[in-house]
Design a binder for these strands. Structure first.
Lengths: 212, 212
DNA sequence: AACAGGTGTTTTACAGGTAAATTATTGACC
DNA sequence: GGTCAATAATTTACCTGTAAAACACCTGTT
């Protein structure tokens, strides 16, 4: 999935998706493998942007199986829209998302972390963490101290202001997320969590899968 | 969901998640609303990074309902890992993902697009499209011509080389996506497509939801 | 016909990320 | 005890995206 981006963006609008599948998945009674149009209909008639993109690919490459796009494309698009929506309250608090992620890592672990640990914890490069720490330190949201044993390492901790900032923002974000998920019933949410966990397990599990 | 990033990243490792929920969702027999741990177990014992992050938040903020994180966090993390995996073959072909998205938009629509249309179609800013077009034109993957009626607008189309490039990459990406999704059975894939479609419909539907 | 306002595209200035090199320091080995 | 490889963090050079301004051109009005 990709030929259509799916990251933030200024305007908003439509698009997304790409995948294909060669029609090898079998079990395709209609031309709709894996609940493509079923998905659309279950969602209340309105077609989402991914469905539109998939349809375009199908008409250009009828021989390709577009089923994977129905899932991967939607995951990417959902992620992009969610991030866009959640960035707004963050910016209001004067933080970028990567900065909030860093503060969040410190908050949820509950103890000091070294820059390397922060990099691992937030999936960022060390260089990026260095830059963020510089800014956050200037703003007095984190403090650093050197390790006594190993003078190469630093230890970073939240200041009271940093902790309060995170604690103030987090409930907001959760409330928004809850409101979005309210569109699904309890069973739906449970199902979705289970399915995504399986998928994520596969993505995180083997180092790189059969390899692309 | 956010206090843990979830975007590409150099290394790889663990982490992710943030949300909370105040325990207001009701229907919580165990401490596990919405299939949190159920999800972990269904995925084969190994705990994913999101589950670990959620557990951390719960221990720091026991009063918050972490259920939304189980879903939103996994969506973000899945998207990040998928993009990371799919970027590799792209780079091998000398393209960034935004570039591929642009070419893909031209390919799937099957006709010329103006820069504005490309921006809408790929969820990018006009300025970003301008820059990408400059590069892609230099590499002879797209061509542009001015509109005869309205001299403000340009029309962009794929060159043969551009078309061939997209057509060569797309099946690769789809094959990878299929291999990832093979971890789910047919029903699971169908369910997932439907649930994501519902969620996406809600995210795309109303302009901004009740507002965050 | 000139102009006001709008639209399509590009330019500018800048913020932030990355890869690769750099610095500082440790620990292990001979 | 000195050298070597490994590790932690930072610096550097560069690239890309964005927001806002600038440009170019169109259109409806008077």
């Amino acid at each position: 999935m990709t030929a259509d981006n799916g990251r933030p963006a200024p305007g908003d609008a439509t698009g997304e998706g790409d995948a294909t599948d060669g029609g090898a998945t079998g079990r395709a009674t209609t031309g709709d493998a894996d609940g493509a149009t079923a998905a659309r209909e279950a969602a209340g008639g309105r077609e989402d942007t991914v469905a539109a993109v998939v349809r375009q690919w199908r008409s250009v490459h009828p021989e390709l199986d577009t089923a994977p796009m129905e899932i991967i494309g939607r995951i990417n698009r959902c992620a992009a829209l969610l991030q866009q929506a959640e960035d707004a309250p963050l910016r209001r608090a004067g933080l970028s998302r990567p900065e909030f992620d860093l503060l969040g890592a410190l908050r949820r672990t509950g103890h000091e972390l070294t820059p390397s640990e922060l990099a691992r914890e937030t999936f960022s490069s060390g260089a990026a963490v260095t830059k963020r720490l510089k800014q956050l330190t200037e703003r007095a949201l984190v403090e650093r101290r050197g390790d006594t044993r190993d003078r190469r390492v630093a230890h970073v901790r939240l200041t009271d202001a940093g902790r309060d900032l995170v604690d103030g923002i987090l409930p907001e974000q959760l409330a928004y997320e809850r409101s979005v998920l309210a569109g699904l019933d309890g069973d739906g949410r449970g199902e979705l969590a289970v399915l995504l966990c399986e998928l994520l397990g596969r993505l995180e599990g083997r180092p790189g899968l059969p390899r692309t």
